[in-house]
Design a protein around this nucleic acid. Sequence first.
RNA 1: GGGCACGUAGCUCAGCGGGAGAGCACUACCUUGACAUGGUAGGGGUCACAGGUUCGAUCCCUGUCGUGCCCA
Length: 958
Amino acid sequence: MIEKNYQPADIEARMSVVWEDSLAFKAGRPDRRDAVPFTIVIPPPNVTGSLHMGHALNNTLQDILCRFERMRGRDVLWQPGTDHAGIATQMVVERQLMERQQPGRREMGRERFLERVWQWKAESGDTIINQLKRLGASCDWSRERFTMDEGLSKAVVKVFVQLHRDGLIYKDKRLVNWDTKLLTAISDLEVQQTEVKGSLWYLRYPIEGKTFSPGNPSSFIVVATTRPETMLGDTGVAVHPEDERYQKLVGKNVVLPLVGRRIKIVADEYSDPAKGSGAVKVTPAHDFNDFEVGNRHGLRRISVLDKEGCLDLVDNEDYLRDLPEGAGQFAEEFHKTDRFAARKRIVERLESFGFVERIEPHTHMVPHGDRSGSVIEPYLTDQWYVDAKTLAKPAIAAVRSGETSFVPKNWEKTYFEWMENIQPWCISRQLWWGHQIPAWYGPDGKVFVAETEEEAISHALGYYVEQEVITAEQGREMALDRNKREGFITRDEDVLDTWFSSALWPFSTLGWPEDTPEVKRYYPTNVLVTGWDIIFFWVARMMMMGLHFMKEAPFSTVYIHRLVRDEKGAKMSKSKGNVIDPLNLIDEYGADALRFALAREAAHTHDIKLSSQLVEINRNFATKLWNSCRFAEMNNCVVPEGFEPAKAKEPLNRWIAHKAAETTREVTEALEAHSFNEAAGAMYRFVLNIYCDWYVELAKPALLGADGPLKDETRAMVAWARDEILKLLHPFMPFITEELWEVTAKRESLLALAPWPLKPTGPTPEQLAMLAAAAGPTDPLVSPAFVMPIFDHADFSDPKAEAEIGWVIDLVTQIRSVRAEMNIPPATLTALVLAGASAETRERAPRWTDVIKRMARLSEISFADRAPDGAVQLLVRGEVAALPLKGVVDIAAERTRLDKEIAKADADIKRAEAKLANEKFVVNAAEEVVEEEREKREAALARKAKLLEALERLKQAS
RNA sequence: GGGCACGUAGCUCAGCGGGAGAGCACUACCUUGACAUGGUAGGGGUCACAGGUUCGAUCCCUGUCGUGCCCA
């Protein structure tokens, strides 16, 4: 029994349990052993996270594909899991400690802090997983993975060691993006350039050997800078080689104000003559461009800041070297001044000596950390890097060759653009939460990289024994006793960028580096579904790692969807307070409604503007579906055993079978092309505009009428079409369809595992290759998974039924329309006279008397040779349908209506004739287009003739 | 500065070489035997602008204007 009211919450709770208990989503189910695999790896959400709209969209789309392919008989693995999200998680736990006024991270020490994070993960890590389940995500939950799992950590270490051995991971001292708040390096991608209103300071640098005087321009050179405080680290001034103003000065020295350091004026093309003064100060240790300039001219790198972004001058040998006497005093005065305070103080000091020429307001881009929000400092440190340039080459080639393709395709351009200009990837982070880098250092700083501590230690000790740094005896002791080697050999403190482990996700989750059957069967995966914002962070890096370690691209298709925004189109953010919580929407309208809303909006080009109203509309659709199933149930509609829709006899039933087949094809093709909105739209239209509006209405007389073959067949077809709808809708609205599937009939299987109504087009060559590689029976065409009870929609094509039902629909629609136009109240029943009806009409009309009467509010239907005097005359498929309304409607109004119709017909004739009179059109246009135009003309002419007749009759009547 | 999108009904968006579509909103009517979370009908658009290609352009090309995003 279907409940009277649709209550999504009850259904969703119940169906989740049903699916879970039946292991419906388990990959490698015995009944799918011979099926072609279909694999998607979930973009692992952060363990800290809770479900947001982006997840809702992302996972809805993945689930649609997974459920679709599962119903098509594939062995689906949707691999779930979560990401340890280094910085984010560490911050969350630290914040929690602070809120509870517990000792902070540093006070706790690394070991205890990590225990604490694991504890937090155990308590809260399930949140997002449970939320995904509420959305209906059909992941194989038994295979859930976490990027810090033992297995995945093994993969990380293996990859690091091997890349290091291959020379693709190395340690380097260069400028990094330093986050002075989080005290760690971050990668280029984690830096957000934000426009900031600042100033451009024009500073006077005195030329060596001249007496500085603010009034004498030849005694100094003016440099423009946005960061005056870094001048303490200046080691050069650059001018453009072709800038005539400065040519004489190239090679000379200036004396750095306040500091007294003598620095060289160099010619370098980096300096833009049109910008500022045309001369720039060069601070190689605090600016990425200056670093390069410095390299080209052999300038020293002097770091003047510490990790927290404060001036670091006292005891700074680099800074103090070669400074004149008295420099120490200045250093002490400014030591440990925060960089922003330092900017102010240094400018003041410069001004007091006349070193500032002018200050202009200046808007420029300033780098900010995407997590901390603080201004990022280019900072000179030792970090680990991945040689991304080398790894990118095969990753670029794989997309060029089509081994992997993006949908929509234009994202490939973005991908190439970035990959071709890729920079070394800084992978070390000065954090605690993450995969600790498997590198150990000896007393001289020599690095030993190995998969295990034992291995590294033994290498290191062997090396130092050989170098006679220690004796063999000492080596043995240190090998056996951790305490003895402490201080001699130390492990790298740093951890890896979170994205390093995510980059391995498509194969690490399958058990790699172990040689598991899952790796063989499910790699490479089929589709990756993600937002464009992480193409660089994640997709590109998975491509690089996948190709390097697996020799195959990790996925054949990358489907990029857009972002979900609020209803005004603004990006959702906590600070703006415009975040729509998907769980609230699920509570209010149901997961199915949310999913269907997202799917219907998921077109390729636009971001999705989501409002609760949008979800409400789709909940209403679910309600409609619910009620239509109740209708079928109330009329005892069941599919009898052995029912063959293609063999139906009744035109109405043949018609709906045909429409269902068309829709099946449409939905299937749209899903194959990842056109989610088209597929969902097709279902929306079919359910509302075909099944509910017409088929069910037209079927009512048969269902309510006398027992007999007509009633039997109609009952069967109503139920059959309902089942087709449930199947086709299942990927989009899994809960409600599964529920209705269960309660409407005795079923052989869950809907989630029921066969899709349309046969797959067959395995692709890629799938065939995969099958050939896999063990077991290999011919997919004879494998059970591919032999489905299918139909070919050509079997259902029936022009006669189409014409008959089309006539009924047109007739009803037109009568309704004219009644509304003539203001005839629904309570007024009118008669219908089919005038001069053809034999065909006379034959089929009686079959539809009841339904037409009901739907068009008629009292009776009769035939006549001609329309009665003064009747309203409609032209339905070339024949006159007359409503004898003399006295009810105004004859003049009816004349006006007919005149309008005639004018319309005239316009059509004119347009068609104009085209056909154009010789170029007849010669150049496709034959069928010309033919179509001729038909249009004939139809319009015939219509006009009939309308003129009708008008004549009306005139006679008045 | 370089790149990618996008300007279609009041709003949100489909369509993308052969006569303008949906949902919402709006108007009028309807408690008809699945459904008022409903039904029926209706109004509303020089498809941003200007050129070009074409027998034919909302659709392809070029330019202009406007909007959004990404990268420097």
